[in-house]
Nucleic acid binder design. Sequence first.
DNA 1: CTGTTAGCGCTTTCAT
DNA 2: ATGAAAGCGCTAACAG
Lengths: 336, 336
Amino acid sequence: MVTIKDVARIAGVSIATVSRTLAEPEKVSEKTREKVMKAVEQCGYVTNTLARNFRRRRSNTVVVLVPDISNLFFANIIQGIEGVAHQNQYRILLGDTQQIPERERAYADLVSQRQADGVICLGRNIPFTYRKGRKTLDPDWPPFAMACEYHGEIPVPTVCIDNIGASQEAVQHLLDLGHTRIAFINGPADSPLCDDRLQGYRRAMKRAKAPLNSSWLTSGDFTLASGYACTQDLLALSQRPTALFCANDEMAIGAMQACRDAGLSLPGDMSIIGFDDIAFAAYTHPRLSTVHQPRNRIGEQVMQLMLKMLKEGGAGETRLVLPHALVLRESTAPPG
Amino acid sequence: MVTIKDVARIAGVSIATVSRTLAEPEKVSEKTREKVMKAVEQCGYVTNTLARNFRRRRSNTVVVLVPDISNLFFANIIQGIEGVAHQNQYRILLGDTQQIPERERAYADLVSQRQADGVICLGRNIPFTYRKGRKTLDPDWPPFAMACEYHGEIPVPTVCIDNIGASQEAVQHLLDLGHTRIAFINGPADSPLCDDRLQGYRRAMKRAKAPLNSSWLTSGDFTLASGYACTQDLLALSQRPTALFCANDEMAIGAMQACRDAGLSLPGDMSIIGFDDIAFAAYTHPRLSTVHQPRNRIGEQVMQLMLKMLKEGGAGETRLVLPHALVLRESTAPPG
DNA sequence: CTGTTAGCGCTTTCAT
DNA sequence: ATGAAAGCGCTAACAG
């Protein structure tokens, strides 16, 4: 293996000079720089980043915890994160946690082991141990930020959208079309984000004086299959809803299938609106109306936030709320 | 920061003993082990993996190069890779290359920098420089394997399916239904995998003595939009096909939409068959017939292969061909 | 079974 | 502007 020593020997300078030339070229005379660069080329030297990171006590790597990479929603967020990371010489260590606390912990531990400098979490669990009821950030935690999700009590720096507002708008759209029997297929109940979407739903229904029927409140796990199953339950009700608001597009697409299988025509017999605006939403039949989230930007912004924390330590009580947009396509119509 | 020295001091042993206790507990007396473990707990010591990796000259990290993580097909493969990696104390550094050579190179370089021990490539490009026309593995390359894709000339260790056979079966299914005017929406022409799928298509058509019309051969880039666009072109032809074979499910779903927009009924006016069997394929209208690939297993196997190379160096001319399966759903029918 | 010791390759004072 | 030297925290001979 070619090391900095070899380069120094060939160039006839000290290893310190080689190191400087590579890291801070402006601090070295032009003549020396040339000599060194020639030597580097000649022997094919590549900096051993492992040694550098070890010495510098940081890894230029950020762990990104994803609940499930086979959930399309996260892909664009990751691309956003990765783009900014790449521009800033940072690497992304992707952890697909499947919401398993042990795996979340394992990845977060990479920071204590100096394999990573910070943690970005796209799921709803904080991957560090903390006393239940804690309401402040623990100064012992490494640089840590969340995207999409947020914590109910601890003010973790976060990039997200206004889930209450977005949800309310989606339901309002259904109400505006004349629906009042509107069911909601939400995500897991223990998620603050889903809490907010539920609140938005409630708020819209209440404001419109539409009946709130608890059997119209179901929750799935964001998969196609769970959307299908929840819809089957909803269709079996004696008081059938005429419209469905789903907390993500996958469940909405599952819901569509369940309706078709039950012989309903869409959107005539059932209006359906989703959330996220994944690419597939524009390719369903009928095309799915949904709430658009700026996924790429969410990723970019949370990585920027992380970089800031890495440089300056702490980011205060940042909560960056990015704009969403209702995208109306073909899956909603006035009640038959 | 708590280091191995602190633990040694508290436990009253040498740092070597601490290191041993943590790495090879069986080589240490039980009494010492207890002392050390207690000291570790007491001061909250965590091994600095960066220092360890530096000393051991390996990182226990494998780079996975993905052409596009927002392409669903890759997600399950990555999950397979990650699962096996995790079990073996390996980390995955995910590189979303967008097929940009510069980015592929940048990620592959992590190996020369000792940030990673090997490279798994899910795309079709070899991320190392090599003379055009080379037909053998370069011994200077780090442990390197491909999944799904493979190289036309260089015998890179690979895990894949029989693309010629799978493609042939898909087209044969269309032929069996009575179609002869079968168009093919393939992926990018410079991909060996797509070459094989084209060959399978040709073989099936030839064997059935069906007409081979070059205007029925199109290629997209595996996205929904490209499937849509290719289909529009196909529908504008005076000699319209009655069936469509698409090289992935996304393009097939795009094709479905284009057909519907053109007023065709599915599968009556147009049979469509896809490739991959992503989750969405079972939730289209009509449900998409397709070729199933064992994505999780592909990922698991390629990581196993990588582990083997990492341990033993070199894997010979391995090409592991996993079984595929035709999944018939509702999107294919006899020609109207 | 345990301790001593010599680095791994690099960055970073501190002199010069 | 450059060099000498001191480690970063850990592992792995080697000796005892």
